[in-house]
């Protein structure tokens, strides 16, 4: 496990304070969170967090094991690249004087970015894609004047073919 960055999917009991316990543990142990997305799942009493962590100082295994110790955490799973799908949603407000509009629209089309709003001198793009696609689009529009940007942080699932239960966390027992 040499890569520094990993995506972890965590199933969490939907209880007050549960998310705080996870983020507090990360802060206390000095683990770096690059992005975090949380939302409901197919079960009303369970939430899913997708975390992007930088494992510079701590091996991923240690982070997973510390998460397992939290009483509200039901399951911890690494989303291994290639075996999982990751997506991110971004809204980008880009400066768009009439002279630049056509070029921006063309760029957007290449990335399947939707025009969510259009103003006299700016465009708001809505883009859903792999985090890498979002990165690339962001870089391309930046020279035009990226006025505001918001990204949800990545969310992910294991691939359909692999079955929902395949990749059990590697816990030493």
């Amino acid at each position: 496990m040499s890569a520094r960055r990993h995506t972890i999917s965590v199933l969490l009991e939907n209880k007050p304070g549960a998310l705080t316990r996870v983020t507090s543990m990360f802060a206390r142990r000095g683990y770096n969170i690059e992005s975090l997305a949380v939302g409901p799942t197919e079960r009303h009493d369970v939430s899913r967090i997708t975390l992007r962590v930088d494992c510079e100082n701590q091996p991923l295994e240690q982070i997973e094991k510390q998460m397992h110790k939290l009483v509200n955490v039901l399951r911890v799973q690494e989303l291994v690249p290639g075996e999982s799908i990751e997506r991110e949603l971004a809204l980008l407000k880009v400066a768009a004087p009439p002279s630049a509009r056509a070029e921006l629209m063309a760029l957007g089309e290449v990335f399947n970015a939707r025009v969510a709003d259009l103003g006299p001198d700016s465009i708001v793009f809505e883009l859903t894609g792999s985090p890498e696609d979002v990165d690339a689009f962001e870089e391309l529009v930046r020279p035009h004047g990226l006025r505001e940007l918001v990204r949800t942080g990545r969310i992910g699932l294991t691939r359909a073919a692999r079955g929902a239960n395949r990749s059990r966390p590697k816990v030493l027992v």
């Binding site: 240690q62 094991k65 030493l172």
Partner: peptide, 18 residues
Amino acid sequence: IDAAEISKIRHADVPVVG
């Protein structure tokens, strides 16, 4: 009993959690 103690500070060649 605590899996998180295994290899936290010193690598465990033979871990037993239980």
